[in-house]
Amino acid sequence: MSVLLTRETRVVVQGITGHQGTVHSRQMREFGTNVVAGVTPGKGGTTVEDVPVFDSVQLAVDATHANASCIFVPAPFAKDALLEAVDAGIRLVVIVTEHIPFHDMLVMYHYARSHGARIIGPNCPGIASPGVAKLGIIPNVVFRPGRVGVISRSGTLTYEIVNGIKEHGLGQSTCLGLGGDPVVGTSFVDALPLFQDDPDTDLIVLVGEIGGTAEEDAAEYIRTQFTKPVVAYIAGRSAPPGKRMGHAGAIITRGKGTAETKLAALRAAGARVARFPYEIPDLVAEIVRHGGSP
């Protein structure tokens, strides 16, 4: 078991013929992922490192029974790519592409949701379960199979933290990078129940950032429904106040959104709070020592 991915996950890579699409398809395969197809309109019939390329997601699904997608296409075309994947019956899509306008993402999110599909991202590193599969771009070298779940809004900071857990002699069940955009397909609150239900995850590390209220929302869920131990870190505690999104933005986040409000909410929910990334592995190890792991 793992979160969202299984050994039966069959991946189609949209934008496989681009540089990043090719490089990361190779790395996903090296991780053990079953990459069965690529899609680039106009390049159907070719192959990329032995992976067959199709003109559309529907053709790829018909030929290979792909059931998950990883999108690398440039931002102006990402909306269409997502709609196409959902239309072809794909129900799990990781969008690596950054700089997608949030107005596009609103349409993408609500379209996917109405079809029962889950988006991870955009502008995210993706999801990986060591020994099972990986969808996205998290470097393979940071992983070691284990029982720590990681949910993060960051990219490289996630790699740093996952690597720290590995170097401490511990390992990960599933690492999920949500992406830092204003509108994300999967939020902390969406992700936490998946880790709650995953028998392979004993505890989770939650990596948040300043801005928005996703961490406060997560804290409320943890306080009321999440039963596994949580180690939390919020990046940007000492960052200067960011440029606010006008007065209307302040009205929405009233009294929330800063590192202080997020940390206070998470502490009140029972999470162990790390002040710096390098404190995380120690806190995790302490929980494991005290029987967090069966």
């Binding site: 960051s154 990219g155 490289t156 996630t158 740093e160 950032e209 000492s238």
Partner: peptide, 17 residues
Amino acid sequence: IANGAGLTMATLDVLKE
């Protein structure tokens, strides 16, 4: 000089400390 917003912010937190 860092890569990624999260790592940049975390670096800032540590330097301030």
